[in-house]
Amino acid sequence: MNAIQQKKRVVVICPGRGTYNKEDLGYLQRLHPDKVEFVANIDAYRKQQGQVSIQSLDQADQFNMRTHTAGENASALIYACAIADFQAINRDKYEVVAVTGNSMGWYIALAAAGALDAMAAIELINTMGSMMVKGVIGGQMIYPISDENWRVDQKMLDTTERVLIDINSKSGCEVYVSIKLGGYVVFGGNKKGLKALEQALEKVQDRYPMNLFNHAAFHTPLLNEISVKAKALLAPSLFKAPHVPLIDGLGQIWQPYSCDPQSLYDYTLGTQVVDTYNFTKAIEVSIKEFSPDKLIVLGPGATLGGAVAQSLIQQKWLDLNNKQDFIALQKTDPFILAMGLEGQRKLVM
């Protein structure tokens, strides 16, 4: 009993699209050479679909932006890396008390929490990732709403909201808030709307607004047809109650003993496909409802760490008021452990 009490309570955060990049090439081969059967099962499924294996993608000589970021490849590849990381968490040191994720990371969270078994997970993730092989619907654009100290700038937030209303009043323009991502907003929309938005928003840091390559207008009404198609292709029987609590993109908690699998199916293939994904809210609920000792961010990559930190600062969690406070905390007693970073990864194993 004492050993159980000494475990650190952790909430696990699953990454979404755009996290497997050039520097992550070989992630599976390098960090998870023991996951042969797991990877083989994914590739056996993909072979049936006439798709390239994730093993060959991971072991490619060079990172190819168009190939590696295509939905039908990126989704399965990121899923494999993230679940392999999840399986590598030292359960003698850490007790997973809840799981959440960002955008596509919701599907990975379902698998990590046990709401999908291994084959159901790859069927869901591969199917959703392959929905736009013949053409991506709309696009996504990311824009900061925080200052250099990672505190939300209300003026910037108000400005983006006004600009969004103005753009949507123009003929043929459709733009929505796709993801609330800590100190950033991700917009999703049609090409005309995003182009108008790009021209209307003030340039920041010589980088933003930034169009996200190969990303569709996820979490917006533009994907209504994808939701309908998904429900026709994927059966409710794939879903079951999770083993540990799940926190979704509305901040709802799906508890193991009260979860209705049909409702979870409806949310996953309905609501979260066409409505804003509030990752910021998911982090707020994670810390306030579960009071974890640590947050573990699964790989590949570590880009999600900044958005998580900004979400913590918004809540003044652990007395964090700005970026400098967070950096100081991470140096002395890191609260966020990103498995895509070697030093922090060692603390999780």
Rank of each mutant, 00 (worst) to 15 (best):
A88P: 00
F187M: 01
E23T: 09
L116I: 02
V204F: 14
Q29M: 09
P236Y: 03
A60Q: 00
G16Q: 08
L250V: 13
L264C: 09
I287N: 09
N149T: 07
N2K: 14
G16D: 01
I89H: 15
A44K: 14
A60E: 00
E225Q: 10
D166E: 05
Y267S: 14
T159E: 12
K191C: 01
A338E: 13
A232P: 02
H32L: 12
N224L: 13
L298W: 14
E37T: 07
V274T: 04
I4L: 07
M210R: 12
N73V: 01
L222F: 07
A98L: 06
P242Y: 06
W106Y: 12
L77W: 03
M119Q: 12
Q272N: 10
R151Y: 02
R207Y: 15
L116D: 05
I167D: 00
K155M: 15
F86L: 05
C173T: 05
G182E: 07
V163L: 15
V186T: 08
D166L: 12
I89M: 14
L57V: 08
D166C: 10
Y94H: 11
C14W: 00
M141V: 00
K155H: 15
Q315G: 04
Y79P: 10
Q5H: 14
G299T: 06
K231Q: 07
N278F: 01
G306P: 03
V177L: 03
M349I: 13
Q29C: 09
E37F: 12
Q55M: 15
E72V: 12
A70H: 07
S53F: 02
V96N: 13
Y20V: 06
I83Y: 15
A113R: 11
P261G: 09
W317E: 11
I226S: 03
I83V: 06
Q87K: 10
